[in-house]
Design a binder for these strands. Sequence first.
DNA 1: CTGAAAGCGCTTACAG
DNA 2: CTGAAAGCGCTTACAG
Lengths: 344, 344
Amino acid sequence: MPTLQDVAREAGVSKMTVSNVLNGHRDRVSPATIARVMEVVGRLGYVPNATARSLSARRSNLVALAFPGRDAGGIEPLMNPHDSLFLGEVEAHVTQAGLYLMAHSVNSVESTANSLRSWNVDGAIFLGTRADEVAALHRAYEAPMVFIDNHGTSPQISNVGIEDRLGGSLAGRRLVEAGHRRIGFVGPAFDEPGVVRERHAGFVQALAEAGLELRPEHVVRCNASFDAAVDAARQVLAAPDRPTAVFATADIIAAGLLKGFVRAGFPVPDQMSIIGFDDLEVARHVTPEITTLRQDIPGKARAAVEVLLAQLAQWPTVRSERRVLGVTLVERGSVGPPPAIPIN
Amino acid sequence: MPTLQDVAREAGVSKMTVSNVLNGHRDRVSPATIARVMEVVGRLGYVPNATARSLSARRSNLVALAFPGRDAGGIEPLMNPHDSLFLGEVEAHVTQAGLYLMAHSVNSVESTANSLRSWNVDGAIFLGTRADEVAALHRAYEAPMVFIDNHGTSPQISNVGIEDRLGGSLAGRRLVEAGHRRIGFVGPAFDEPGVVRERHAGFVQALAEAGLELRPEHVVRCNASFDAAVDAARQVLAAPDRPTAVFATADIIAAGLLKGFVRAGFPVPDQMSIIGFDDLEVARHVTPEITTLRQDIPGKARAAVEVLLAQLAQWPTVRSERRVLGVTLVERGSVGPPPAIPIN
DNA sequence: CTGAAAGCGCTTACAG
DNA sequence: CTGAAAGCGCTTACAG
């Protein structure tokens, strides 16, 4: 494996001239020398050693994407289409920018911070971290960091997210508009700040504007998993004063509910309406297809990388940036009017 | 950020003693010294610099997972649940082993090889590479490499895959057993060696054993995308001597076909039977749920990392290893007998 | 426009 | 059991 030294010798110049050529400081080198060096680089198949470069330049060209690990209590890491799609997009943009992506599941803030420090990563993007973890991370490692979908963090924290609250309220309005008066909510816990809490808040607000309230017995806890949602359908149906429509905070939940309702003899949307969130592929796989709030995941990934690159360029002058992407209602087939003749 | 030097000074020992303690060469150090060093490490919050370590040790602790990029002509990178699930599992095992994962989309073999060389990665796992790329990769970079789902590569190439041919033949047999005589095949191109070709071969063989043949007009090309499969359904229905059942080489295709068939007025399984492959979540999302050939993706990821670690341990004595995981038929609701009263 | 020197933070023989 | 020295392959001021 040829080194800088080899190239320099072969081209009859010093190592640092080669370095200058390779790093684009070409104003410091004569065109003839550049040509000679490039020829040798090509002939020898020279590839710079990234670890050596990182060590001496104190810049690694490494970006980490951190996502919730197994210990985070959720489903398997990256089982979630949102996270995997996001990762794929981030990788593409990071590569595009000439950087490298380290994929890292976070099981503990400490070990994650240590990995970042150890590799001296230039920056990191975090999926699914809580507000307290955000703070700890910033304390443990000084580098540009962009968080995704965080709510309730200080404005000094760079964040890319979507209009979760608006999404929730659009969902609520859509169901109200369809004529529903008893509307349920199905989603994960929302006692901590986060997307679910925001969506819930927007939803409650929309109901309130219509003079309706979200009754506690119409709120069903359910993780973002299909099977959990199939079960949750039973709880919805068993609730006193059964709702005629539900807002699910994720399409995968909506899809599970759909199966659960139909299985229990409640066709959708004839006997039960459902509105989802995300507009993942699953929303179109099922029949009827799910009416949902669309978010732009590739756009979010692009924004996250943009914000990170901007911070890298400014570093160490941190100027935090918060970006909020829109959501739009996608009409499909899972919302209808309340049943004229309810079952039961 | 404290360095080895700082720890050494503080503990009153040499750098290399600290290094020995940290790298587990503890037999070379007295218990008392170990304790003192560890105390200082903890107190200072020392984290070894991975790039420095890589540079001097000529071992990076970095493993790359390469997956098809945008230019590979498929869908968006990692949109595919198989790849993203696999990635998540690999990350977990790699981390478990104290290594780090670099995620890398491959758009060209050259640039991928350069990245591997540049970072001096200890090994790599490759998803979705063709036989010719495999060879080029091995030529371009000397390190343990494990390929996934390759067929037709030489035995010196380490590979982890599944019984694709058996899967195809189980699919064929199942449909024959259900009484079908006109059976179609829907999947991507299979002119090159690969999983699709194997599944096709097994399928054809199963039909042959039943005295049936796969008629060319009953073979429909279709990429592994839901929308493409919805379209493909029309082609299946329009074929002369319309089949009463189809084998789809991927669940996502099966799901699309299901939607296409139902939309066209052909209920599944009453008028049309479908059998899929993979047993991804989508197979259970739809109604009826899809009968499919299950493969163990987490198991494949585990095996891939195992094989890679084994080679790392032996390196540079390469002993290639090929692992083939089983497939099993999962009965669900998309296969029935041929229609007693066919439509049309 | 070009180069000699120092240094990034580690590990690796080697010596004692 | 412990350490001094050399070196991994680069980049960074600095000097000319």
